[in-house]
């Protein structure tokens, strides 16, 4: 019944999250799933308002690690952020302004 309600039985595709570099996140999976938005919001206010630029909860660091290997982005159908946000039907506003791709590494 629960499965039917959530649509899982009906075959709604689960988000295809691929974690290219597992085990390196700043917190465990459950914490990140539950609280990533709070971390990001806290960091965003500190960075914009006070210029605190620690890397632990920086959006750019998320993108640097989680961008898809092929697309190079956290957006797109299989993108780390977008796939899950679409599945959960939660608006993903960050990338209206923020770059969804990491900063290209300067060529030596």
């Amino acid at each position: 019944m629960a499965a039917w309600l959530t649509g899982a039985a009906a075959g709604v595709p689960r988000p295809g999250i691929v974690i290219a570099k597992p085990g390196q996140c700043v917190a465990d999976k459950d914490t990140m799933r539950r609280s990533h938005m709070d971390f990001l919001k806290h960091q965003r206010d500190q960075t914009v308002r006070q210029g605190i630029r620690t890397r632990e909860h920086s959006l750019n660091e998320c993108v640097a690690c989680h961008a898809g290997e092929k697309s190079g982005s956290v957006l797109g159908q299989d993108g780390f952020c977008q796939s899950c946000h679409s599945y959960a039907a939660v608006e993903l506003d960050c990338f209206e302004c923020h770059s969804a791709k990491p900063k290209p590494v300067a060529k030596p």
Binding site: G51, N60, E96, H98, S99
Partner: peptide, 29 residues
């Protein structure tokens, strides 16, 4: 209008006002 290809250190997008911030991202490093 919508923006694409932003510098990851300088987010900017449609519908907000912006201006010179003395390259605050550079000053901070």
């Amino acid at each position: 209008e919508p923006t694409t290809g932003q510098n990851p250190e300088v987010p900017r997008g449609q519908g907000c006002v912006e201006g010179c911030h003395l390259c605050v991202h550079r000053i901070d490093r």
